[in-house]
């Protein structure tokens, strides 16, 4: 049985780094571990030895027991289409510009691809622990909502808009009311677009049965997964984290732990004298002013966390602010050790 740890949060909070740190920690604890990352910083990717974008987990040379993959959304969607569509429909879809546009821009497409990869790695039964770094869209909400949204789009929501009623079969679409309406629209808007789009949507709909079953199993995996939300005390990530808990009340796997990254030491907030006889006056005043500045940040972080914990009744875990991002598996392991509570998840 594979344990799954889903790490969500806004962009830029250190989610990918912490996912990697958890994975390194778990591998060092003897678990066969795989981490799926999304868009890691170059030096982190180098540290994990994943220079090329691929959905297939590759062993991390520097860390026995650990494999890493990097989400490739396009390849994931191609594989899904081949799995769920007849060969000729699959070819039509994959060369269709509308399909590529949909997969490129639809925010749920990336999130769904990540969920699909998660399911695949769980079902391979190769791992004791799977750490899933999630796409930042929607502050992590998209990851949980994507299976439902994709089911809706593929299932014909757009097609219903076009035909204005129930879903017709392929031939019926062009016989009944739809065709003249599409013709009028095309004439007015200036291209043979809508007829092509209708054809495309019919093809897309043939994926529905397979994709829909798959989406349900992704949802089941998500319900069983453990989940960690990462944020910092900065306004944008916090807003996303609040949204996450405000809007995601119905999900069974609702996380109970929030990791506050980039936290400053509490003892910086206590004002104290700088006693040291031999110190040059300008050095003394620079050091004092500097600590005062950072102390105001510590106060702010404390207030923000207190309010957050009270409002959502959550357990907060601090991870200290590391000035230099980790660039090796050893540095990742050290980062994890700075936060014993977070390190618990790697057992």
């Amino acid at each position: 049985m594979t344990r799954v740890l889903v790490v969500t949060g806004a962009g830029g909070v250190g989610k990918t780094t912490l996912s990697a740190a958890l994975a390194v920690g778990a591998a060092r604890n003897g678990l066969r571990t795989c981490v799926i990352t999304v868009d890691p910083a170059r030096r982190l990717a180098n540290a994990l030895g994943i220079d090329s974008l691929t959905n297939h987990p590759a062993p991390v040379t520097a860390q026995p027991g650990l494999s890493a993959a990097m989400l490739d959304v396009t390849a994931a969607w191609e594989a899904m289409v081949h799995r769920h569509a007849d060969p000729d429909v699959a070819d039509r879809l994959l060369t269709n510009p509308f399909f590529r546009a949909l997969a490129d821009r639809f925010p749920a497409a990336q999130a769904y691809a990540a969920g699909e990869q998660m399911a695949e790695h769980i079902e391979s039964h190769r791992w004791d622990l799977l750490v899933v770094d999630t796409p930042p869209a929607g502050g992590g909400l998209d990851f949980y909502r994507a299976p439902g949204q994709v089911r809706e789009v593929v299932g014909g929501r757009l097609l219903k808009w076009l035909t204005g009623a129930g879903l017709p079969g392929r031939r019926a679409l062009f016989r009944i009311t739809a065709r003249p309406a599409l013709r009028i629209a095309d004439t007015v808007l200036g291209g043979p677009l809508l007829e092509e789009i209708a054809e495309f949507l019919m093809d897309l709909r043939s994926l529905y049965d397979g994709l829909s079953a798959r989406a349900r199993s992704i949802e089941r995996h998500l319900q069983r997964a453990e989940s960690i939300v990462v944020t910092t005390a900065e306004p944008t990530p916090l807003r996303e984290a609040r949204r996450f808990f405000d809007e995601l009340q119905d999900v069974t796997g609702r996380p109970s732990t929030v990791v506050f990254n980039k936290q400053l030491p509490e003892d910086w907030s206590v004002s104290r004298n700088l006693r040291s006889p031999g110190l040059a006056p300008e050095v003394r005043s620079a050091a004092r002013d500097n600590l005062a500045r950072w102390a105001s940040e510590v106060h702010l972080q404390r207030d923000i966390k207190r309010e957050f914990a009270a409002r959502y009744r959550l357990h907060l875990v601090d991870v200290p602010w590391a000035a230099d991002p980790p660039t090796s598996v050893d540095a990742l392991a050290r980062l994890l050790n700075l936060s014993p509570e977070l390190a618990e998840y790697a057992h």
């Binding site: 509308f98 546009a101 949909l102 808009w161 007015v188 808007l189 677009l193 809508l194 949507l201």
Partner: peptide, 23 residues
């Protein structure tokens, strides 16, 4: 600038689908 006689409801629906699908 669409012709006055054009059926608005059809166009609105068509454009919504376009907006979701066409790049």
């Amino acid at each position: 600038p669409v012709p006055k006689a054009a059926p608005t409801r059809v166009l609105t629906r068509a454009l919504s689908v376009l907006a979701e699908t066409a790049p």
